[in-house]
Structure formats: structure tokens, C-alpha cells
């Protein structure tokens, strides 16, 4: 498990002293008490067990990274847990699926509504979107990377 996390970019979790600074910085823990970055890391380091907590609850505020006295980067561990869950075939949040589908389709994360299109014209803003060649390059990269 340790190697699997490391290969997916997890920070130096073996240096964790379970001080709880990350959890006291964590804004999601304030609104959703069962989400607890200290316990996530504890589960890995102390019990050699993938944590049960949902890594997608993290809001990516990165305050745990700033405040950890040991330079552990708890957020990077949460991200590698997301990756591993995805590789194991766990369901993704809808927002993530939408984002990825949109980028595959257009190379950008959002599409233009009729209303905004009109407004862009009115303001003299340039056209929106990639060229055919650009888009096929982006699609090839995504395919090769296995997205």
C-alpha cells in the first residue's frame, strides 16, 4: 500500500506524528466532523489500512499543507487516495465526470450558452474554442494518458 500511494504522488506520510494540526486547519472537518485528515493518515501509517473516509469530501483548501509541522502534505495523500479509488473502479462524483467529459469533447471545461455567445459578440470578444487540429491533439493526449 505504501508504494502504491507513493507512486501516485503521496507526500512523506511516514513523518506524521499524529499531532492533529491538519485536522484543526481543515474547514471540511468543521462542517462534516467525520472527515478527519489526521485519522486518514493514521489509518495508513498506524494500521496499514486504506481509510474508509471519502477522499472526495476534501475541498482542496490546502491549509493542512501550510500548517503541518512535519511537511507531510496531507492533501497529496488525499489526492493519491482519490486516484487509487478511481483505479479500483469506485464511482466518481458527478461533477468530476461532467468535467472530464467536457474536456474530452471540447478541450475546455465549460461550454458557451447562447446568451453568453451573444454578449461576447456585443463586447467584441474573439471566437471561443480550439481549432480542429488543436482539439484532436488534446484528444490524443487524453487517450494516451488513459483518461
Amino acid at each position: 500500500m505504501i508504494n502504491r500511494l507513493r507512486e501516485r504522488g503521496a507526500g512523506n506520510f511516514l513523518k506524521c506524528i499524529q499531532c492533529g494540526s491538519c485536522t484543526s486547519a481543515c474547514i471540511v472537518n468543521v462542517v462534516e466532523e467525520e472527515f478527519n485528515p489526521r485519522k486518514i493518515i493514521g489509518s495508513i501509517v498506524r494500521f496499514n489500512k486504506f481509510p474508509d473516509q471519502d477522499p472526495w469530501l476534501c475541498s482542496a483548501c490546502l491549509l493542512c499543507v501550510e500548517r503541518c509541522p512535519q511537511g507531510v502534505n496531507p492533501f497529496s495523500i488525499i489526492v493519491s487516495l482519490r486516484t487509487i479509488r478511481y483505479e479500483n473502479g469506485n464511482a466518481l462524483p458527478n461533477k468530476v465526470i461532467e468535467l472530464i467529459e467536457q474536456v474530452k469533447k471540447t478541450g475546455l471545461a465549460f461550454s458557451l450558452s447562447k446568451e453568453v455567445e451573444e454578449k461576447r459578440k456585443l463586447l467584441g470578444l474573439p471566437g471561443f474554442g480550439l481549432s480542429e487540429e488543436g482539439l484532436s491533439e488534446v484528444r490524443r493526449i487524453l487517450l494516451e494518458a488513459g483518461v
Binding site: V79, V103, P126
Partner: peptide, 14 residues
Amino acid sequence: KDASCCAPLGFFSL
């Protein structure tokens, strides 16, 4: 014109 999305969190999480 051909720059793509910078592929932030949703992507690099996966």
C-alpha cells in the same frame, strides 16, 4: 486559440 483547459483538480486527482 489552441490552448486547452489547464486540467486542474478533477484531472490531476485522477
